[in-house]
């Protein structure tokens, strides 16, 4: 399994000279499997636009998209995802329903006027919607599980597992709000998803002092991300969902802070274009 990061910025796209190293596109990660016919994608932030162009070039006809939630920074790229406009393509979209509205109807709200000139019903590709959390999804030796996680509104996290490795993807997550200290992993938000994972891509939007003014906004400080990985026994932390106001230099200070807190989990900044080979 290989992960390719197409977008790792949080909240809003931030193109510009101060973000060229780590990128300004919002969340999108491709999971590369042995099966070249199927593309597995996590989230549809603006990073998915470039991925879509690439998938068209590759001739991929089946795309399985897993959405953690429907905040715009995880959805807004979908409308500009080139494979949607090809009738030969099937796109399976898995994501959280709300307690009262299905995933399809929730996406319809963002994919229709006045937010977009076209309606999702105008999309030529075949669309299939599947509400999460549900049964694990399996293909080509990969098992993908989902659980509801702590973030405002219905939000899931993912665990991707093969015989050789396990990865957790938790781009928007504030586990500290319900407690990390003194809890066993089964009592920590997404503790089952990230437990003993080889790699955890985790929300680390803030420095500790920034978090103090943003408690309850659904994101973690770098210290909470580190503490979370320690609590669930994860081996490596990839710092994800970069704060829009943070420049490349700020992010490098964030990584330094994570290393200062625990070098043993080998903290690493997610960067647009990076590949994580597992």
């Amino acid at each position: 399994m290989e992960l390719r990061v197409w977008g790792c910025r949080g909240s809003v796209p931030t193109p510009g000279p101060s973000t060229v190293t780590y990128g300004g596109n919002t969340s999108c990660v491709e999971v590369v499997l042995d099966d070249a016919e199927t593309a597995v994608v996590l989230d549809a932030g603006t990073g998915i636009r470039a991925l879509g162009v690439d998938l068209v070039a590759r001739g991929t006809r089946r795309i399985v998209l897993f959405l953690t939630h429907l905040h715009l920074d995880h959805l807004e790229g979908l409308r500009f995802f080139a494979p949607l406009w090809d009738p030969r393509v099937t796109v399976e979209i898995h994501g959280p329903r709300s307690p009262v509205v299905s995933l399809r109807d929730r996406i319809l709200r963002a994919f229709s006027p006045p937010l977009f000139p076209l309606d999702v019903r105008d999309v030529p590709a075949r669309l299939v919607f599947n509400d999460l959390p549900g049964d694990p999804w399996r293909a080509n030796g990969l098992t993908l599980s989902s659980e509801l996680v702590l973030h405002p509104g219905p939000t899931v996290g993912f665990r991707l597992e093969t015989a050789a490795t396990a990865v957790a993807y938790l781009p928007d997550h504030e586990p500290a709000l319900a407690g990390i200290e003194g809890r066993t992993p089964d009592w920590i938000s997404a503790g089952g998803l990230a437990r003993d994972a080889d790699v955890v891509l985790h929300d680390a939007q803030y420095f500790e002092d920034e978090y103090d003014d943003r408690i309850g906004w659904g994101h973690s400080s770098v210290a909470h991300a580190v503490r979370y990985c320690e609590a669930v026994g994860a081996r490596r932390l990839v710092l994800f969902h970069h704060e829009p106001t943070h420049s490349d230099r700020d992010l490098e200070r964030l990584e330094d802070r994570a290393r200062e807190l625990n070098d043993g989990i080998d903290p690493l900044l997610a960067r647009e274009g990076m590949t994580i080979d597992l």
Binding site: P136, T143, S145, E147, L148, V149, L150, R159, E161, L177, A178, G179, P185, D186, W187, I188, S189, A190, G191, G192, L193, R195, D196
Partner: peptide, 19 residues
């Protein structure tokens, strides 16, 4: 497979009643 964990609502309920 993901390890068994408590449902998120129970985690939130625990935090709520703990306070």
């Amino acid at each position: 497979m993901a390890a068994k964990q408590k449902q998120l609502l129970l985690i939130l309920a625990r935090e709520f009643i703990s306070n």
